[in-house]
Design a protein around this nucleic acid. Structure first.
Length: 377
DNA sequence: AAAGCGGGGAC
DNA sequence: GTCCCAGCTTT
């Protein structure tokens, strides 16, 4: 790293505490930028300058690991290569490409955002963070990311990685999830983001958090910021950032009914807004057993009263806030029940489909249920 | 401030 | 098993 000697970094680290040391900040910028230029991963969204592709990547990356997103990003972009293609698509097609990625509200939000970008911005992704922030599914992080990375605007961002890196770098004691802690982090990020290539800087901060400044056992020996890091200086890497304990997910008993007729399965579409909103699945309800489930499905309007159902086994599906214990039952309908156009409860409508049909969204849970019920024949 | 919202990878 | 990920929205 030209111009950045260990001695300079060490001198900068000892000068002042917390804020207000421009020389230390500059040393950190130089060190991190040099490091990033050397080790930056080759990721598909780093090969483009298309703001739409970058917006897509940032939405997919919300609470989702880089390695998980890569194949989804490639498929989605191939199917919807620009804002207009996405805006013109049926929502079920969009959810189909999102299937398995999780947090499906993101897909619906992005779809609505594309339509808004066409309607209000002539099909061009806006560059201003405040304009981006007003799009559905775009919060402070995503707005800062798109504005800085795609448009070179000097906008800060704070994600989980940056929160950890900056908490350690400046020795910030507040809980990043608290209002005060978040405010402090955004102030710190805003202080550090440079005029020149702010997007690179933001990416470098995240890259450091993802590859070096890990939640547990950070590799401080390989860290370009170790000479200016307060937490490292004080031996407190393991204590920062402070994390508050999260509560366990309640266990919930669910019954899923896989009803077949001539090779097709009865699917129902979940109402948008809630869990798995907009996705299609074999009807399932929260119930302690089959008889209670039958009653609940009858109330919902699903026509399976006359179908003999037997157990195919259980599926466990863990979400961030629920731990689902799913009893999978299956059976063959003698004659095809007519599905009503409107359903009650969690489902809005139903249809018979081949289990591997395309063009609509399904959750990983739905795929597990189908695999168990149909896997053996 | 807290809860709802998926799924998976690393340990 | 636990932790948490390039978070956003609603209550």
């Amino acid at each position: 790293m030209p111009g950045v000697t260990r001695a300079k970094l060490a001198a900068a680290a000892g000068r002042g505490e917390g804020t207000g040391d421009a020389a230390r900040d500059e040393a950190a910028r130089a060190a991190l930028e040099a490091w990033f230029a050397r080790v930056a991963r080759d990721l598909p969204w780093r090969r483009t300058r298309d703001p739409y592709a970058i917006l897509l990547s940032e939405v997919m990356l919300q609470q989702t690991r880089v390695e998980t997103v890569v194949p989804y990003f490639e498929r989605f972009l191939a199917r919807f290569p620009d804002v207009r293609a996405l805006a013109d698509a049926p929502v079920d097609d969009v959810l189909s490409l999102w299937s398995g990625l999780g947090y499906y509200r993101r897909a619906r939000g992005l779809h609505l955002a594309a339509r808004e970008i066409v309607a209000r911005y002539g099909g061009r992704v806006p560059a201003e963070a405040s304009d981006l922030r007003s799009l559905p599914g775009v919060g402070a992080y995503t707005a800062g990311a798109v504005s800085s990375i795609a448009f070179g605007r000097r906008e800060p961002l704070v994600d989980g990685n940056v929160a950890r890196v900056l908490s350690r770098l400046d020795g910030l004691e507040e809980d990043p999830k608290s209002a005060a802690g978040a405010r402090r982090l955004w102030e710190t990020a805003a202080r550090l983001v440079p005029d020149r290539e702010p997007g690179k800087w933001n990416e470098a901060l995240m890259e450091l958090g993802a590859t070096i400044c890990a939640p547990r056992d950070p590799r401080c020996g390989d860290c370009p910021l170790r000479a200016v890091c307060r937490a490292h200086r004080d031996g407190r890497e393991a204590e920062l950032p402070v994390v508050r304990a999260k509560k366990a997910s309640p266990r919930v008993r669910v019954v899923a009914a896989v009803v077949l007729h001539e090779g097709e399965v009865l699917f129902a579409r979940r109402a948008e807004g809630g869990l798995f909103g907009g996705l299609w699945e074999p009807p399932m309800v929260e119930a302690p057993g089959l008889s209670a489930a039958r009653a609940a499905l009858a109330v919902a309007g699903l026509p399976i009263e006359g179908v003999r159902l037997r157990s195919a086994g259980r599926v466990r599906h863990v979400l961030s806030h629920r731990d689902l214990d799913v009893l999978v039952v299956h059976g063959v309908a003698r004659d095809r029940p007519v599905v009503p156009s409107v359903l009650a409860g969690a489902y809005e409508r139903a249809a018979w489909r081949a289990p591997d049909a395309e063009g609509f969204g399904t959750s990983t849970l739905a795929r597990k249920v189908l695999a168990l019920a149909l896997g053996g024949g």
